[in-house]
Amino acid sequence: MTQLAQPSPATRYHLSAPGILRSEWIKLRSLRSTWISLVVAAVLAIGLGVLFSALRGNDFSHHGVIPGPFFDPVAVSLRGVYLAQVAVGVLGVLLITGEYSTGMIRASLTAVPRRAPVLLAKTAVYAVASYVVAVVATFFAFLGGQAALGAYGFGVSLSSPGALRAVFGGALYLMVVGLLGLGLGFALRNTGGAIATLFGLLLILPALAQALPSSWQDHIDKYLPMTAGTQIMVTKPDAGSLSPWTGLLVFACYALAALVAGAIVLRRRDA
């Protein structure tokens, strides 16, 4: 029969930061929803980027129009990110609300009773994993999109101004959407509530802002999460919008606020 007691010294097992990171990595990759969400995100970003680029190129050439100075071929090829963010954001929420709904959280917090390291490790692991997938997605969306536009003579290369920043920054945008979802999941502990809040912030807030008087809109709109965050993928900005990196920083502050709220809830409330 299996030995229950280990012959080695009692100090053999102990909690460690690398151990907790490894644990979260195992948790992330051992769920089918992770792979489905990330593959769907990549397929949406690439597929829609190429599709939109082809449609725009065809539209221009069909009508014999020469694109104006505000035509942004980089942004067009990265347009699929707007839909890919749904998959990345939902997965961010599920990574923690799935633990609450199944009871797994009790096992996680019994192993790591200090709790905060669980949030930090989940954040780090998902940040890396979502960024790696997102950067592959934005890279191929850009290449594919520019190839599609190039067929009509409107494509640009990675060396054109802002292109590289848009590709790598667009992936950062996706990553931050995921972390915003994760933070909301920790704060609300409920899948439905956190997903509704996430997309309320990203998609409904700009729609509501449009109801404001236009003098207010100019001051508020550019700071809204998605408006600010997506500036990173724009190479022909509108007047008055935030600069790409300022915009992304503002967006990251929303995610940070959600994660801080999540950390407070995690520490204070009974699990």
């Binding site: 909690l15 490894r22 644990s23 195992i26 797994m104």
Partner: peptide, 17 residues
């Protein structure tokens, strides 16, 4: 977690220590 295999469940907990 209902979506994880028994072995991966234990591996994830084991990894922390």
């Amino acid at each position: 977690h209902s979506g994880r295999s028994a072995r991966n469940h234990l591996r994830a907990l084991a990894a922390t220590h």
